[in-house]
Design a protein around this nucleic acid. Structure first.
Lengths: 142, 142
DNA sequence: TCAATCATGAGTGACTCACTCAGGATTCCA
DNA sequence: TGGAATCCTGAGTGAGTCACTCATGATTGA
């Protein structure tokens, strides 16, 4: 039950991008270097983010990536859904999954549903701006 | 971000076991057949459950597995931790992980922490008895 | 024209997952 | 006492995924 490195890297790089937002696009190389990530791998990740509409790209010299919206309006939940493909803890509660035949008798579906809901609640209101600023409080266990 | 089939199978078989709890041990073959699972795979899973203390085994003819405690006292959270190994959404918040050096500057840790907390809250009070009886309400989205 | 950048697609080694296979140990019952 | 039923253990395996790398092209600014 682990999220992939894509999510970690994607969030880090986006937070870095949000941090230095100055209307000018930031080249990937800079983001990769400042976060210590492989540039080519990050490229793949940013392709997805671009296709999903979170960032826009400018080619050529002085090019790079920028956020398409203010970081305050970008939800971590939406980012993770894009980066992970889907946040469902089990296939049967994936968003694109047709309802399975055994739902009325299924003992596990209720568990997966509850898990998915709780995750959605947890990060459904967290924004990129918040985590970039480190302003999200650790709400428990300390 | 998917839980493994071990968790699904383990929960299903345990729920079935809880359902027919009659003091007598239930052979794995019966559980596997009633749930349509591979007996040998289920064997591996029940080994773990036994080592973790959730079930006890009786060898020989008329042997099988039984719950060591009433299903009302077995938390889904504990089961999933055993079946998955760990419920942390990312390495850096795993229970056995030494605190990483970059915590003060880390933008993602807060996300993983919040996710883990929310999962724990969601299933930290759900019991095996509840899911076996299908009594856990779908609290949202319908 | 050249350097900087994004864009695209293919390849790859390591790892994990969901099993299967083979054989052994223990217990009950006829 | 023998054999069937069951748990126990460890090794193997094919398919898939992950986290990249590699190679090459297209676009743009100076």
């Amino acid at each position: 039950m682990r999220l992939s490195a894509r999510s970690e890297y994607g969030l880090r790089a986006l937070a870095a991008l949000a941090g230095r937002e100055a209307a000018e696009p930031v080249p990937l190389r800079q983001l990769a270097q400042s976060e210590g990530l492989s540039e080519q791998f990050l490229e793949q990740i940013f392709m997805e983010l671009r296709k999903a509409g979170f960032v826009s790209s400018t080619r050529g010299a002085h090019g790079g990536y920028s956020l398409t919206r203010p970081a305050e309006e970008i939800l971590i939940f939406d980012l993770l859904e894009t980066l992970e493909g889907d946040l469902a803890p089990y296939e049967c509660v994936a968003t694109d999954q047709p309802e399975c035949m055994q739902v009325p008798f299924c003992v596990t579906r209720q568990v997966w549903l509850k898990l998915r809901e709780s995750m959605q609640q947890a990060i459904g209101t967290m924004t990129l701006a918040e985590i970039a600023a480190g302003r999200t409080w650790e709400t428990a266990s300390r």
